[in-house]
Simulated assay, not measured.
Amino acid sequence: MRKMALLLAAGLSMLSSVPAFAQASADQKDECLLASRNCMNQVDDIKERIYKLNSEIKKGTRVYTPQELKKLKDKLKETSDVLRALENPDS
């Protein structure tokens, strides 16, 4: 009976920690890069933005959904194209 009560208590404590873990992984997302949210005081140059996008993409599916990763990759391609156009204006 005592073992059963301990197992039940351990199970309940594990279940109650799942939402906190989910929130921690959600906090790792860079909402400014992903959806232009929470970035009122943040200004990046193009190379810095490319670096941040690469860093976020490397986090992969443990932080982002496949749709969010696709959005980040599209933004990376767009930003890289802008940088290329600025570096080689006559090509």
Rank of each mutant, 00 (worst) to 15 (best):
M1C: 14
M1A: 13
M1F: 15
K3F: 15
K3Y: 15
A5D: 11
A5K: 11
L6E: 15
L7D: 15
L7M: 12
L7E: 14
L8K: 10
L8F: 13
A10C: 15
A10G: 15
A10P: 13
A10F: 12
L12I: 13
M14N: 15
S17V: 14
P19H: 00
P19N: 02
P19E: 02
P19V: 05
P19D: 00
A20N: 10
A20D: 08
F21C: 09
F21K: 14
A22D: 04
A22S: 05
Q23M: 08
Q23P: 00
A24E: 15
A24P: 04
S25V: 11
A26Q: 07
D27P: 03
Q28I: 03
Q28F: 01
D30N: 08
D30E: 07
C32P: 00
L33G: 02
L33H: 01
L33Q: 01
L33V: 00
L34A: 05
S36E: 15
R37L: 11
N38L: 08
N38A: 08
C39W: 07
C39S: 05
C39F: 06
C39K: 06
C39M: 08
M40Q: 12
N41L: 09
Q42P: 00
D44Y: 06
D44P: 01
I46F: 00
I46G: 03
K47A: 13
K47I: 14
K47E: 13
E48M: 05
E48H: 04
R49E: 07
R49N: 07
I50F: 00
Y51F: 14
Y51D: 14
Y51A: 15
K52R: 13
L53M: 05
L53V: 06
S55M: 08
E56R: 00
I57R: 00
K58I: 04
K58R: 13
K59S: 01
G60F: 02
G60W: 01
V63M: 00
T65M: 07
P66S: 03
E68C: 02
L69T: 05
L69H: 04
K70N: 14
K70W: 08
K70S: 10
K71I: 03
K73Q: 09
K73I: 05
D74Y: 04
D74S: 11
L76Q: 06
L76S: 03
E78Y: 07
E78F: 09
T79C: 01
T79H: 02
S80T: 12
S80M: 04
S80V: 09
D81F: 06
D81R: 11
L83C: 06
L83Y: 01
L83G: 03
L83F: 03
R84I: 04
R84V: 04
R84P: 03
A85W: 08
A85C: 10
A85R: 14
L86I: 03
L86N: 11
E87R: 11
N88V: 08
N88A: 12
P89I: 06
P89K: 12
P89C: 12
D90T: 14
D90I: 11
D90C: 12
S91F: 11
S91N: 15
S91H: 14
